[in-house]
């Protein structure tokens, strides 16, 4: 957590994640280039590298984009989210190899600067069949670059959250640009329609999963309002042991935890990257562990155990007739609250 930064805080789970990721990438590239040189003996190795790395990058980008909604639909997918930033950085690196080879192949031989060449060698902006699709790829690559270089927690803290969030929302702009890049690029080369069909399936999957998860979340976000100081949130019985029930109170989600015969409520929003604390568990150490990257908080205080310094707001709670009532006004982050006894 935020005691002192490290380059990458490796653990077993991350090592397995990266090993699978990189071997998957290696197998894909070897198969693509190996099979390609059999099936298309006329294609040069440069062309195969350009196509192999390009398709690999767009495939990875699809995985990056569907992990978020998948986790909201079912917590079973949370392990995928755990190290998503390495997936993002890998997507950029693979996309960059594709771009560098394309630039060498198509833009490095002339007298003008290769990047200038991408922008000026084709200016048929009003043509669909001959659209300068490489400019779309260039802008998308710049976005992926900016996201990759700011994926360390240091940047979330020091770029300030609004800028960091805007930047990372641009991934959808990059995705749209790349759909254009690939679709228009395929129109111009004589590759088979398979890629275009796969791209269409991918697009339906990405948009569909986002819609489903957004729909699922609307219920959770219905705010409970009440004229009383305390609002009725849920019943004791409906909260699973060592887990939470999530309700929206005072404009944001609250996580109401049940553990060892007690009830405590904290703001649902993890101080790290706004992960959903209410989807985490209380472990043997008595801490709530955020399901996204493992930051921990004590349910009674909303504070991370020392030496860590993260804190989230807490809520006063009381139980009447097996129902949990939560005080609408949150306490300052890290304020100790006596848990309600069941």
């Amino acid at each position: 957590m935020s005691e002192k930064y490290v380059a990458i805080s490796w653990n077993r789970q991350k090592k397995i994640y990266d090993a699978l990721l990189w071997s998957g990438v290696a197998v894909y590239l070897l198969l693509f280039i190996g099979l390609g040189s059999f099936l298309q003996p006329n294609a040069t190795i440069e062309t195969l590298i350009i196509r192999g790395f390009g398709t690999c990058a767009i495939l990875l980008l699809h995985i990056v984009l569907i992990i978020g909604p998948l986790c909201r639909i079912s917590p079973k997918f949370l392990p995928l989210l755990y190290n998503r930033r390495h997936l993002g950085v890998t997507t950029f690196l693979i996309g960059a190899v594709h771009a560098v080879f394309s630039i060498i192949q198509f833009h490095a031989l002339g007298t003008i600067n290769p990047i200038v060449s991408i922008l000026v060698s084709n200016t048929k902006f009003n043509s669909i069949a001959d659209f300068p699709f490489q400019i779309l790829g260039l802008i998308a690559l710049i976005i992926l670059f900016l996201m990759a270089v700011t994926s360390h927690d240091f940047w979330l803290n020091n770029l300030t959250a609004p800028i960091w969030k805007t930047l990372h929302t641009l991934v959808y702009v990059a995705y749209a640009l790349l759909i254009g890049h690939v679709a228009l690029g395929v129109l111009q080369s004589e590759t088979s329609p398979i890629l275009a069909i796969l791209l269409g399936i991918g697009l339906v999957l990405v948009v569909g999963l986002h819609l489903i998860s957004a729909f699922k979340e609307t219920d959770l976000d219905k705010e409970i309002v009440s004229v009383d100081e305390f609002v009725e949130a849920c019943t004791v019985a409906e909260i699973p042991e060592k887990r939470a029930c999530i309700r929206t109170i005072s404009g944001e989600r609250v996580a109401i935890f049940k553990y060892d015969g007690k009830i405590s409520a904290v703001s649902n929003v993890c101080q790290h990257q706004n992960g959903p604390l209410g989807e985490g568990k209380i472990g043997d150490d008595g801490c709530i562990t955020c399901p996204w990257h493992g930051f921990q908080y004590l349910p009674e205080t909303g504070a991370s155990p020392p030496p860590f310094t993260e804190k989230v707001p807490t809520f006063n709670v009381k139980i009447e007739d097996g129902k949990v009532f939560v005080k609408a006004k949150p306490n300052k982050a890290g304020t100790r609250v006596e848990p309600a006894k069941i």
Binding site: S2, E3, K4, Y5, V6, A7, I8, V149, T150, H152, F154, W155, N157, N158
Partner: peptide
């Protein structure tokens, strides 16, 4: 800028360099 960066490794600073 950030107290948590005190005494951090070369590897960490190398990553921050690009951003």
């Amino acid at each position: 800028l950030d107290d948590s960066a005190k005494g951090t490794s070369i590897g960490f600073r190398f990553l921050i360099f690009f951003g």
